[in-house]
Design a protein around this nucleic acid. Sequence first.
DNA 1: ATGAAAGCGCTAACAT
DNA 2: ATGTTAGCGCTTTCAT
Lengths: 337, 337
Amino acid sequence: MATIKDLAKLTGLSVATISKFMNGGNVLEKNRPIIQQAIEATNYTINEHARALKTNLSRTVGFITPKFSDVYASQLASEAAVYLREYKYSLFVYESLNSLEGEVEALDFFASKKVDAVMAAFIGDDKRYYQQLLSKYRFPVILFDKTFDNVAGDSVTINNLKAAYTAVSKLIEYGHRDIAIVRGKEAHFTNNQRYLGYRQALADHGIPLHEDFVVEVDYSGIDVYENITRLFVNSHKPTAIFTVNYFTTVSTIMVLNQLDYSIPEDISLFGFDNYDLFKIVKPKPWLMVQPMKAIAQEGVRMLLERIKDHQHAPYRSVVLESEMYVGGSIKRIPQVE
Amino acid sequence: MATIKDLAKLTGLSVATISKFMNGGNVLEKNRPIIQQAIEATNYTINEHARALKTNLSRTVGFITPKFSDVYASQLASEAAVYLREYKYSLFVYESLNSLEGEVEALDFFASKKVDAVMAAFIGDDKRYYQQLLSKYRFPVILFDKTFDNVAGDSVTINNLKAAYTAVSKLIEYGHRDIAIVRGKEAHFTNNQRYLGYRQALADHGIPLHEDFVVEVDYSGIDVYENITRLFVNSHKPTAIFTVNYFTTVSTIMVLNQLDYSIPEDISLFGFDNYDLFKIVKPKPWLMVQPMKAIAQEGVRMLLERIKDHQHAPYRSVVLESEMYVGGSIKRIPQVE
DNA sequence: ATGAAAGCGCTAACAT
DNA sequence: ATGTTAGCGCTTTCAT
């Protein structure tokens, strides 16, 4: 493998000059092509380990995702990578496999890789646990999807409660009162917040909560079919369904289709998150969509600031709004006076 | 940040001894807890940059995926990470964003990170292009999903043609003769191979290829609905559909459901790849499933051998078989004599 | 079993 | 603008 020393010998220049060239410093115009040629001849690429050792900056960012297949995290990682690349930064993505131990493993791994910062979508909700955990590491951590009261790191989230509130209010505005919700089994932050938004929207419009209309599904998918089917066995049936995320939205559409319930004729739907499959679905579902680009951009911005300053400025938390995608999945129900 | 030197001072031992401890060398039993304590007190983690610089081994593997959202690649990365972790290796995942330039970027990035090997699912098919490209890098590359005649690196693939042949033969065995195929627009290797398997199965059973039954869809999803709908406008309609991968399978099921075609009563289906959504689909689709664990395991095995030997042994290519998942998505059609 | 010291490839301070 | 050189944190050889 070629090193700067090799290039120095090849060009007759010094290692310092080559280093300057590599880092955009001042080099005589006539020397530039000479160096460039030597680089190409030797297929030289800089040794980032040596550079990182010297500068104490690795130009890498760790990213903790619950699963590579997680739609939210993979969109976020994808967008973040684009912004980071502009600053010569790259992502180390580590799967926590939905476990706290996996998260600790990831953090330890990042610590030894000396990443400059970490972006994380953690699975747990225990603020003090994370506060203590993160205090062990010297890199800044930017939290996504959920926040811990600005106590463990900067965070970028959306207003989950409001997004759900908006969605359910739209269904009510269209005349629906029998509105079911399909949410995850786990008591996770976003899941809960969106449930609260659902409840609050109902309450604010004087609609009592109907226990049978709260469907909790396992993200493995095994019980989705049965649980959604059960919504329609009683005489008191929902006329609309609010689904709290991509998985529940897709799977609910799938099941409704299979049960031969037409959307929106037989049942109305308001979903969450936008992803590839919704390009196929007819009619287009109404959706609350998270501004993934903005989330990534804000996150990267904060992260770069933290790396630069390295100060213990108070943690900031940015809360963004979701966007409402208008679809054709809600039927207007005549108001009964 | 704590260094070995700090630990040396703290424990009264030498840097060399601490290093040995860190690497599982011989250290007096009575010294072990002392070192361990110092590590915990300082939150010490090894500096992998320094280690990599010294040993010329980074214990990282680069992984090139077309998109983070790619189902095949994300399953593969996930499985590979598990095996690699057993050998203290970790994955650097880089998105090529479905472009050749992105792939080159990824390789250059990996070169400067001095990864020990690269796992890649490339998008192109030009053997000579990749042969030339990869010759520029000194790390071994293990190719997945497609192979280039053992000319650019070791590879792990499945027998795509045979898998498709098996699937279509099964449909024929059930009495179907009007079998459509939903494939991708792009002339990619796996896509083509599976198409060839389809054609060969038809040919071997004396069934002529019907042009209108070959549906080519864009992976963005925009034309899937229209293209599948078009299958049913003529008087000559298919009784079965073979879909060549996860995306086409899911979206075809989605569209059929929306068109109120029941599976298997109105139309039979044989799909490809297994993933989360199929846990929800009723009836369970027949599927050809790639052995992702075995693919990852074989790939990692080859990769570790390459790293160890560093010899220019001839490239090997491992071809695995897909597994057939029996479902309820095929109707038996009485044979007409 | 432990320690002293060289050196991996780079950057940056300093000298020219 | 270019060159010389120290040193980042680690492993490893060679002594002890």
